[in-house]
Amino acid sequence: MRFALGDEHRQLARTLHDLLSSADVPSVARAWAGGEPEPGLTLYARLAEVGVAGLAVPERFGGLGAGPVELVVAFDELGHHPVPGPLVESVAVVPALLAGLPAGERWLPGLAGGEPATVALPPHTPFALDADVATVFAVVDGGVHLATAGRRHDSVDPARRLFEAEPGERLGDADAAFDLGVLCAAAQLLGLGRGLLDLACVHATARRQFGRPVGAFQAVKHELADVLVALELARPLVHGAAVTGTPADVSAARVAAAEAADRAARVALQVHGAVGYTREHDLGLWLTKVRALRSAWGTQSWHRARVLEEITAPASQITAPASR
């Protein structure tokens, strides 16, 4: 047993972190929210160049054929910098849906090359994210269908443009891609939480009141410490779910990651005070995405119910320790 990221995983995270740190992601996200997708599409093309877009695409279609562990490492970093766009959809869910279908041949090489895709999976993911920029738009409704965009809805996250999906041509049966979306969204939440904690610590060190940095006060320190504890203990659940793929582990990871990210968002806002509550400040880019991802890909309540169902099943082995 070796339950730790390998050098190749750390290298992937570092590559993404370096790329995104120099990409002014907050400005990209603001442009995306304002209806200017070009900087975001350019950024996605750069991510495709380093292999992100093709992570889950089989090698015969030009992708890397990587597994869930690589995906969660990447999504952690895509959340850390609040990259806009249909990432879970383009990088994980649509490739997983198409990989087993004849239509895969038609679309997957393009996806690996950086064409954005989106998908709606009612009932838990009823809206398709950013369908107006996606090359491939699918809906899973008793099978995988191509879709066209219906009515647009506003999200709490201005950088999430939500569309109703009208089903069209049927492509085939749907494989279980939903859990992969849940898992990647959980990893993205972890990264968002980490980004919020970073922002809060920087602010708490720089901002002075009563003649000292506000981060020197225990009331502030302890809130931030609790955020770190929550994130540190949610991460192994996300990694564990990437390894086992069981419904209980996937839902547990999502519940814990969303709670940790939510706590990070609340504490980061409180530490910033009024300035964090403004649109002008970048904090909201992370905070609103956390709120949105808490309801996308299943509610917390639904995921808790699924965990409970698994662990109370009469023949449940789920409470057994790690084993073959």
Binding site: M1, R2, A4, P236, L237, D249, S301, R304, V307, P321
Partner: peptide, 26 residues
């Protein structure tokens, strides 16, 4: 319900966290 589920999730998290720690120490 939520508290039962969260307790189980917490135990699972601590288990996996510890497996990560022992992997790192190894």
């Amino acid at each position: 319900r939520d508290r039962v589920v969260d307790a189980w999730i917490g135990a699972r998290a601590y288990h996996l966290y510890t497996l990560g720690t022992v992997s790192r120490l190894a």
